[in-house]
């Protein structure tokens, strides 16, 4: 075990998978010479060469589209989108390509593509560069959408994403690259579509993922000092969505708060709450609460932006309300 950053964990997964399987290659803007805008692929270009670490023109449509094609033809592309906001320029290739090509041709093709994309707000990048639109992509059957909250899961899940024959969108949060966690040495794979208990507690269930996990863990510490113990369930994957551990936890706590960084309407909280009401109504003693982003395009001004983003205090408050 070693304590490493999220950036290192993602980087290690890519590196090890490229060493393991020659079909794996990286393509995207500034992934090569620059070393990745967030330095995730630093040194890859020198080690693996320009054939396997391919700098592309600024052209998201063809980045995902060509990666789809290469995946259909037997390669294992990892296509990097500099930010998830630019995935909207590749939306057709994701939605009508990656997600559908297998089903549409009766299973003749597989599209083992991984799209890595960085999202999240809080860095004063303004309305178009600060979004957390994870649910948009999770809407489409055929896609797998992963968004890890710890270095351990990032490494294990990215390896799984590269090895699965299905198309995966792997979402990273730009404010989390420096966050640290224990990661085993060597190879391991985490299962896609299995959520995980990240903190034990019996008073309330917090269901979250990615940046929301970080915030929730901190909120749980604060609550713990008041004698409230929160059980934290990390979804890790938005599609497939596994609510097993959340329901198990609810059986004990009978109360839940759902935390996400994205907007509230039609969000992760909306989906999770609907399914909990459908599948676990008998265990719910108090209306479920959602903590999410205020429904405005994010402003540049620092204070306004922070006002719009979910904060630790919002989670603490929501927990007190459901108790």
């Amino acid at each position: 075990m070693a304590e490493i950053t999220m950036r290192e964990a993602i980087s290690q997964a890519l590196w090890e998978e490229m060493e393991r399987d020659e079909r794996v290659f990286i393509m995207g803007e500034e992934v090569g010479l620059w070393g990745g805008t967030y330095a995730v692929t630093r040194n890859f270009y020198d080690h693996f060469g320009a054939e396997r670490v391919r700098d592309t023109p600024i052209a998201e449509g063809v980045i995902v589209g060509a990666a789809n094609g290469a995946a259909m033809a037997g390669l294992r592309p990892v296509a990097e989108l500099m930010t998830i906001n630019f995935a909207f320029l590749a939306m057709d290739q994701i939605v009508n390509g990656s997600a559908k090509i297998r089903a549409m041709f009766g299973g003749q093709f597989t599209v083992p593509i991984v799209i890595r994309a960085v999202g999240g707000g809080g860095r004063q990048l303004g309305a178009t560069h600060s979004q957390t639109p994870d649910v948009v992509f999770a809407h489409f059957p055929g896609m797998k959408v992963i968004a890890p909250g710890t270095p351990y899961d990032a490494k294990g899940l990215l390896k799984a994403a590269i090895r699965t024959d299905d198309p995966v969108l792997f979402i990273e949060n730009a404010t989390m690259y420096q966050s640290k966690g224990e990661v085993p040495d060597g190879d391991y794979v985490e299962p896609i579509g299995v959520s995980k208990v990240q903190r034990e507690g019996s008073d309330v269930t917090i269901i979250t993922y990615s940046k929301g996990l970080q915030l929730s863990l901190q909120a749980a510490e604060e609550l713990s000092s008041e004698g409230i113990e929160a059980q934290i369930i990390d979804l890790r994957s938005l599609r497939p969505l596994d609510l097993g551990p959340a329901i198990e936890s609810l059986k004990q706590t009978n109360r839940a708060v759902i935390v996400e960084e994205g907007w509230r309407s039609y969000g992760v909280g909306a989906e999770v709450a609907a399914r909990l009401y459908e599948e676990a109504f008998d265990y719910i003693d108090s209306p479920l609460k959602r903590v999410a982003q205020v429904e405005v395009p994010l402003p540049y001004n620092r204070e306004l932006e922070q006002m719009a983003l979910p904060q630790i205090g919002d989670i603490v408050k929501a927990v007190r309300e459901v108790l």
Binding site: G126, Y300, L304
Partner: peptide
């Protein structure tokens, strides 16, 4: 990011605009 900025502090460096001057903006 001030209220007196051309885009009222909501746009920042990448999003300056002044429609009165027929300047229809910077796009990111």
């Amino acid at each position: 990011g001030k209220a007196t900025g051309v885009s009222k502090g909501k746009g920042g460096s990448m999003h300056l605009a002044d429609v009165r001057l027929n300047y229809w903006g910077g796009y990111a």
